[in-house]
């Protein structure tokens, strides 16, 4: 599997897949799992990232999501985006099927 987070990454977010349907989800500032990357809580620094991951994994997390992990996020002009191709694709959908995945839902709104 590709590396999720580069060592020394400043900004990180937590993602997982939802148990019921496998949908990609992100852990939010409101301590819940959301479908859109734009609603993900962003941790600044290693300590904040560890704390974010700990918040995302209470004792009963497995009832909702699978294998939460941290991944690197880049910041530019107050916008955040996933650093890797892998996480960019997870956040949007297959690059070969723009009619599928989250990108299709955004388009339809």
């Amino acid at each position: 599997m590709a590396q999720h987070a580069a060592k020394g990454a400043r900004f990180q977010a937590v993602t997982a897949n939802r148990l019921s349907d496998g949908e990609v989800v992100y852990f939010s500032a409101d301590n819940c799992w959301v479908e859109s990357f734009t609603d993900a809580d962003i941790a600044d620094g290693a300590e904040a990232a560890d704390a974010l991951l700990a918040r995302a994994m209470p004792d009963d997390f497995e009832a909702h999501v699978l294998e939460p992990y941290l991944f690197e996020v880049l910041e530019a002009d107050n916008f955040y985006k996933p650093a890797s191709v892998r996480e960019t694709i997870r956040a949007a959908g297959p690059t070969v099927r723009l009619d599928l995945g989250k990108q299709a839902e955004v388009k339809a709104e």
Partner: peptide
């Protein structure tokens, strides 16, 4: 490839296309 697969490192399909 990376458009779908959890193990992939890179995309295959766009290259084939």
């Amino acid at each position: 490839g990376l458009d779908y697969c959890n193990l992939a490192n890179a995309r295959s399909i766009p290259l084939a296309q």
